[in-house]
Design a protein around this nucleic acid. Structure first.
Lengths: 144, 144
DNA sequence: TTAAAGTCTATAGATATAATAGATTATTAA
DNA sequence: TTAATAATCTATTATATCTATAGACTTTAA
């Protein structure tokens, strides 16, 4: 399971992708529309800003906006930023690798092999899920 | 990421699958071979026994053994038992579903759609990973 | 009848998650 | 230039979960 922090981040980013051409959006607005605790959302957006996913503007008429194009931000990036590893086991993680105490030989471990395949498929799907595509898919589903 | 509890469970089960025809195996032996804290492993095996994945025998010559055939136990079952939901979001979980506060319409939510696909692929791969296949795959990899 | 091994209950410590509070800084517009 | 607005930053709290351990009890085989 993803953390709530990560889920909130994703919803906030999709919201900001919808408003990509409308200038900075207040934290307050996102928090209300998406039912996210405002102070918690503050911390999340700040982290996304420090990671150059979002930009911000202080003061009146301030707020947050997508720093990158909606087609350039995908779920894989966001999850890695918020929650860390995507793989289910440390020994198959690309970004957070840690060796396994339990297995004698990592190269031939059948468990590692199975979870490696899960990781590959997950990364393929999450990496292909851009904010752009999520919005487009939403439009299609709403059309039915 | 899976919990250590779940990782330990998987390693212990694969070990017991290797010894499927050799009668009960001591906790002590599994703990030593797989470098798992013995007392923690006790609790894990007991839980697997209560779920009818393992059987046990008390006293001298006692120990744990697979209650089901190695071909009938897969990673999906084990993860659900140990860690709960496999889906990354509660709103796409089959066994631990919870509605989402953030989205207006679950049916048309693009985020939900994306994570639904991840869940489908993950379940397909984990459901197909039986103890049997894990062992066979290990043999093949060792052959190289 | 004794040693070995699983069963059960309880609990402790560490870590992560989720959320909140309040002071500070930057910006805009009047 | 000043008042209002909104992000920034630091600190703190509460809760939950994870990981592991302790010890008494029960069952079984030799």
């Amino acid at each position: 399971m993803l953390s709530k922090k990560c889920k909130y981040a994703i919803h906030a980013l999709v919201y900001l992708a919808e408003k990509y051409h409308e200038g900075p959006v207040h934290i307050q607005e996102i928090a209300e529309k998406k039912h996210i605790p405002k102070k918690f959302l503050e911390a999340i957006l700040l982290e996304l800003r420090n990671a150059k996913v979002l930009g911000s503007k202080k003061g009146k008429k301030g707020g947050y906006y997508l720093y990158q194009k909606p087609a350039d931000v995908n779920l894989m990036q966001i999850i890695r930023l918020m929650d860390g590893a995507i793989a289910l086991l440390p020994c198959v993680s690309l970004n957070y690798y840690e060796p396994c105490e339990e297995c004698r030989n990592e190269k031939t471990c059948g468990i590692r092999d199975a979870f490696g395949k899960v990781r590959d498929e997950t990364l393929r799907l999450l990496g292909g899920s851009t904010l752009d595509k999520i919005l487009k898919r939403e439009k299609i589903l709403e059309g039915n």
